[in-house]
Design a protein around this nucleic acid. Structure first.
Lengths: 348, 348
DNA sequence: GTGAAAGCGCTAACAT
DNA sequence: ATGTTAGCGCTTTCAC
């Protein structure tokens, strides 16, 4: 915009034409090693950086990014992620990049496979995905790599090496933190972990790591504290209430925690049974969780900005694939937010 | 980028030239009411929206945004804000907008006035500012309004009506929250507010509101709790230690709090005197505060992303002045983050 | 008051 | 392998 140096300046200084400079810029071959070297040197010396608008304006091609995430109902965890996809979409749109979302049933592997196929059909420059099925995901990202398609993990990541970036919570630490919040750093006799009973075949369980962190904290700080596991059914209300009745019947249960986003299931029980005085901690800012927090059936929520994570994931692909900017960090462990009834209204 | 409709389409449909369309687009007159109406109608019908790149590319004029913030030393509160200005700058640069920072001595009103003058000399499209001097700021923003220069507040805002937006923490609630964190929601006999002794002439004190929130919480929850004020000198270490010695000598002081960013001053004392077992809460993520948090001389910090606030402030001016996008919200009360030793390493 | 035309910096197709 | 050229959609003179 100012006395900016342009591709013409580079061309002149290197003694070649704009065409050649453009070719080395996007290294699409057809350039002798000699001129390439010369151009590169001049670019370096002059500190040339291309004008994004001019570039985008001239090359009017549509680029796509696809987001591959689970289907969900309103009020569930992935809703926030989707909101972030919307934000990322807006930003990408500024660069003429289209963002499409492909969904699958997170409990149905074949549905995931079909979604992968659909993703490839879109011929995207990059894909943002949450790895729910470990093996299938590994297979899929290998394909992406082969085709030169960038991919970035959100929510959780797999231990492999081809991803462009990762945006998500540090799972182990979140469990560790959770234990501190639950106990308030003071000795407690026992804690009850409420878990979802479900047969998971091939499903990776990100909350496992979180639970490990939790248990480690308890072991390190309060070795005498008993850690109990109670399983509930998310679908069947009656069974769930029965299980919780049994729990409260058997022994004093004044410290409750869940490692997924469904602490509201417990809150429902407490509300209905009129149980007060428990310390209850859960994860994530679902509307129902917030309600429980405000009513004081839940005392704290550990939250993450899954919206920002998704938006950042999309941005990272835009940055790299269009603007050719290197990424600052590959693994982005985002902050863990502690929410209580006094600060939750200013979240989001 | 796709089958988008362009200014040419509009011109053709309205039976005028591109030039005329452009004139009504930026209503710089010289157009008959008749053509203007026709063009406007066509624009509406066709749903035309201008291509930002093309526009920016063609009108290569430099636009400036100035950030008017206090000078500071390394490790002080404003450092984080400045970091955010850097981020905002990068984003603005994508749109060919230059961001310049103008600094002033926050304890010297004349310095602020000079800074205002310098700001105007830059002839910016917008300015981001933190209102440290109430009256002077009011005078200044009136000037800005008169010149059609957008301005957005960060950190704290004044009760007037011309600002484009505000990005900052809800001060009152932050004090309220702070009290809950300090007491852990359990009755305490007394709390000690450590305050900076300084004569402030004309200086607005944003922490006043915060203190009010704090005191209100205590009054509502624990009316028997005694709230004491202790004044310390930030510059003179010996005087400070004396004051704190006196405090600890007179009465049990096991709950300490500060409402500005300098809780590290208290931590220094505790560290040196080997005092443990106090519950200490402060604000903001200065490096020294984090250190104290890690060493457990401070148990919690209430933090805000002043970096994101500053970046968002800059972005908002870009959005409105260049892209002509309306702002989603004018008053943006950003989240209050609770930091302890277990989540602080993932902050920022 | 309005139209015509020359770019802005870059891309891509077409020559050579 | 390299140069030439015609735009991309818009802004901005400059004539009329």
């Amino acid at each position: 915009m100012e006395g900016k140096i342009t591709i013409n300046d580079v061309a002149k200084a290197a003694g070649v034409s704009k065409g050649t400079v453009d070719r080395v810029l996007h290294n699409r071959g057809e350039v002798s090693a000699a001129s390439k070297a010369r151009v590169l040197k001049v670019i370096e010396e002059l500190g040339f950086s291309p004008n994004v608008y001019a570039s985008l304006l001239a090359s009017r091609k549509v680029r796509k990014i696809v987001c591959l995430i689970p289907e969900f109902h309103q009020g569930e965890f992935w809703e926030l992620t989707e909101k972030g996809i919307g934000a990322g979409q807006e930003n990408a749109a500024k660069y003429g990049v289209e963002v499409v979302t492909v969904r699958y049933d997170q409990y149905d592997m074949e549905s995931f496979q079909r979604a992968c196929a659909r993703t490839l059909e879109e011929d995207p420059v990059g894909v943002v995905l949450a790895p729910m099925f470990r093996n299938e995901t590994l297979k899929f990202v290998k394909e992406l790599s082969a085709k030169g398609i960038y991919y970035v993990y959100i929510d959780s990541k797999l231990e492999e090496d081809g991803y462009l970036a990762y945006f998500g919570m540090p799972m182990y630490q979140s469990g560790y933190l959770c234990a501190d919040i639950l106990t308030m750093g003071m000795p407690v006799r026992s804690v009850n972990i409420i878990r979802i009973a479900r047969d998971k075949k091939g499903l990776s369980d990100p909350t496992l790591t979180r639970r490990t962190g939790f248990v480690d904290y308890i072991g390190e700080h309060f070795p005498d504290c008993e850690v109990r596991n109670v399983f509930i059914d998310p679908k069947d209300r009656d069974l769930r209430f029965e299980a919780l009745d049994r729990m409260f019947g058997q022994m004093p249960a004044d410290h409750l925690v869940m490692f997924n986003s469904r602490i509201h299931l417990v809150a429902d029980y407490l509300r209905e049974r009129g149980v007060h005085g428990c310390r209850v901690v859960g994860f994530d800012v679902l509307e129902k969780n917030l309600a429980a927090l405000r009513e004081d059936y839940v005392q704290a929520l550990i939250a993450q900005h899954s919206d920002q994570q998704a938006a950042a994931a999309i941005d990272s692909i835009v940055e790299v694939s269009l603007l050719h900017r290197p990424l600052a960090k590959r693994d982005n462990f985002t902050q863990m937010d502690i929410l209580n009834r006094y600060n939750c209204d200013y979240y989001l």
